[in-house]
Simulated assay, not measured.
Amino acid sequence: MNFKELRKKIDKIDDEILNLLDKRMGIVKEIGQLKLKSNVAIYHPKREKEIIYRLIGQNKTNITQKGIEAIYQEIFATSRFLELPQRVAFLGPIGSFTHQVAVEKFGKLSEYISSNNIESIFKSVANGSVKYGVIPIENNSNGIVGESLDYLAKYDVKIVAEANLSIHHSFASNEKLISNIKKVFSKDIAFGQCRDFLNNYSLQNVELIPLDSTAKAAKTASITPNSAAICSNIAAKICNLPIMFENIEDSSENTTRFFIISDFKTNSTNNDKTSLCAFINNSDKPGTLAKLLYEFNKKNINLIKLESRPLHKNKGFSFWFYIEFEGHIDDCNIKEIFELKKNKLKWLGSYTKDKLKD
C-alpha cells in the first residue's frame, strides 16, 4: 500500500472519530444541563479516572497509557467547557510547573489566571472569581509548602483533587552550538538540580543568572543572544525556544505534589485521602497530640502525613496540626472521629489518590 492509500485510510478514520466525538459532546451537553439543574459540580475527577483506567485496561497495541491519558484529558476538558466554561487560577507565570499541572487537568480551552502568590489563589476560589485553584503542596526533595497549609486552614475552600508531577528540566537556547552560550537563566534551585549536566557540558564557568521562575528564564533566554535557559518543556514551547537537551536533572525521582482546590465535596471512590486541620488546646503539653492520634488508631485509620504549623496568635510557641490519612469523610470510622472532636477539627477535603507517574 502506498502513501496516498494509507492517508485515505487515515482520513476515513478521522471522519469516524469526529462523528463519534460529536455524538459524545451531544450527550455531554445533556449531562451538563442535568448537573446545572441539580447544582452538581462540573469537574468529576472520580468519573474521569474511571474512564481512563477502563480504557488503559483494554491493552491496545499501538497506543500507550500516556497517549490515552493525554488524548482523554483534552476530551474531558472540551466536555467540561461545553458544560460550563472553567476559570482556573495557578501559581506563577504561564509556563511554570503549576501551569503545566493546570493544563494537564483542565485542558487548553479553560481560562487560566496567573497568580503571583499562593494567597491570591485562595482568595479567588473563596470569593468565586475562579472555580478552581492549583497550588503546590510538597516536593519530595524540599518538603512541605508551609504557606499552602496555612491558607488551607485560613480559607473556606476544599481540596478536590491531588496531582503528582515528575519535575523534568530541559536546556533550551536559540544558539546552534553549546560553545556559543555565555549565560544560563533559571530559578536558583534548578541550577543545583542540574549540576551534573552543567559540569558534563563544561557549562560550570558560564554566568548562571537566577530568576523568579523557570518560565521567566525561558522568556529571557528567548530574547537574549548567546544565552540558554533551564526550564520546563512547556515554558520552552510557549516561548518558541528550541530545546537542545531534555531531562537534564541529576535525579529522575524529583516529584512535586499539587492540590486542586474548589468549593465542593467530592464523592467517595474507595481510593481516597482526607486532609484536616487539628486545633488542639495546650499543644505544647506532653501527650496532647498523642491523645488525638490514638483516636485514629482505635478507628483503624491509616495516617499518611503529620505537619505542625505555628498559630501566629501569641508570643509563645503554640501550634496547629495538618493531618492527612487514607479514607473519605463519608466513611463511618472517619465520621466518628469528626463527631468526637468536631470542635477541634476542620475538614479540608477528601480526594482520590493520584498515582506517581514516570
Rank of each mutant, 00 (worst) to 15 (best):
I42C: 01
S268E: 09
I63G: 00
S141M: 15
N180M: 09
P210E: 03
L34C: 12
C332V: 15
V40E: 14
K4Q: 15
Q73H: 11
A163C: 12
A235M: 00
A153V: 04
A172L: 01
P225V: 00
E69K: 09
A215L: 01
D188S: 12
K108M: 12
S186Q: 02
A221I: 05
M1F: 14
H328A: 08
I243T: 01
Q86W: 08
P93T: 10
S227Y: 04
S170Q: 07
E162Y: 07
I52R: 04
K182Y: 05
G192P: 05
K131N: 14
F264H: 06
K305I: 07
F3K: 13
I121S: 04
W347T: 10
L109C: 13
T274H: 06
K176R: 09
F319V: 07
D212V: 10
L55A: 07
N127V: 10
K216W: 11
P45L: 01
E295W: 09
Y112R: 05
K219N: 09
L208K: 12
A153L: 07
K313C: 12
L84K: 15
R80F: 04
N200W: 08
D156Q: 09
E111A: 06
A126K: 09
P210T: 05
F197M: 07
H44K: 14
T266G: 06
C277F: 14
N174E: 08
K9A: 15
P225S: 08
I31W: 08
S213I: 00
G192K: 05
I121W: 05
K355C: 09
A290G: 08
I329K: 10
G133V: 03
G67R: 05
N62M: 10
N343E: 10
